[in-house]
Design a protein around this nucleic acid. Sequence first.
DNA 1: CACAAAATTAATCATTTGTTTAAATCAAAT
DNA 2: ATTTGATTTAAACAAATGATTAATTTTGTG
Lengths: 206, 206
Amino acid sequence: MGGKDINKSTEEKIKAAARTVLYKKGFAATRTRDIAEEAGMNLALINYYFRSKKKLFEIIMSETIAVFAGKLMQILNDQATSLEKKIELIAACYIDMFTEEPEMPTFIVSEIRNHPEAMLKRIPVKQAFSQSYFIKQFELAVAAGKVTEPNPFHFIMNLLGLIVFPFIGKPMLMASAGLNKTQFNQLMQERKKSIPIWIKAVIKAT
Amino acid sequence: MGGKDINKSTEEKIKAAARTVLYKKGFAATRTRDIAEEAGMNLALINYYFRSKKKLFEIIMSETIAVFAGKLMQILNDQATSLEKKIELIAACYIDMFTEEPEMPTFIVSEIRNHPEAMLKRIPVKQAFSQSYFIKQFELAVAAGKVTEPNPFHFIMNLLGLIVFPFIGKPMLMASAGLNKTQFNQLMQERKKSIPIWIKAVIKAT
DNA sequence: CACAAAATTAATCATTTGTTTAAATCAAAT
DNA sequence: ATTTGATTTAAACAAATGATTAATTTTGTG
């Protein structure tokens, strides 16, 4: 039998190439030939290993959402960390993640727009969030008068907005600020420390 | 000669249909037949009035960026309003804009990703922002010790992040929070008042 | 009305694109 | 070395898609 272990190599190469191209251009704008070229492999191998463009996309998407949402849920559900520590962990974790994979946030947002039902059923977002340990902590903090805005969704929108938006608006922001990539990443590193401070100020604002 | 004034009607109908479909699906996923169907008109009329799919897209995109960035620049350059008033105006203006056109932010972000050079040269973002009256006001406030973070780009990223992100992450946020459209819009209305308060707290945070 | 220009339509074209096929190549086992 | 099955390749196919064409209808004008 053929190299069933060596396959891994080309199968993984195609997946890596697909991730690169899909992250940059999205599903609709990506041609199977783009992926083959990026991988340096024959076009037919995509269908040989993954049956169809759509199937390959769904694998990439599932893994991406799993990484993105999984890490968030893991931090939100950690019973050993305070609310304040969670803010710091989330900021650091996601700024590092998106600095390494800058196209990931826009990819997620764009593709969820184009296939909302299909994408969202991939993760049981609802119960995962509303039943998280974070929610309990947040409600306790509200009851103790340590948090002025009682709606946890405002909190999560604020935190994610401060973290994610700069990566999503990166091209516009870099152009208007006249920044290069290094300067942009420098700003993001600053935000790792600033966002927890800012969010704590927001939490106590009246 | 034919109804040169009546044309307006069908030409505008096509543009409106194109805007609807393009906002929802993006350039690459939109078929000219989708636009024709949405407009209830013959497919060939798209090329008759707009030469090509790309030309039609560019018109929609230009108008969209003009509205989006134009309004921002107008507020930032108003010499009659204080820094604090500008925050309130921007929050109110954009939350209303995106409540009416919920697909606009994701459309802008997605398409700038796919054609960064072409889109960004459409507006002279750089000088417009760095030479704005807002920058002067901001530097004055920093000098007067009223603002702790001296980099105005952090300020604008924070403000836009708080305003825009919920609309971009809407599908995920609605799913995780278990919200319907009305409840989501209600949250956005709350943010119109809260964001200025939050931003002022951020500005003074140490 | 009659005519000309403009607008609209149905049909068709040429290209792109996802997928398949059949042959060729490769790797391991006997 | 031969055989067998997996892998890879070049070629081709069928459907989708942006665009065009030629004919038809509509509209405004003298």
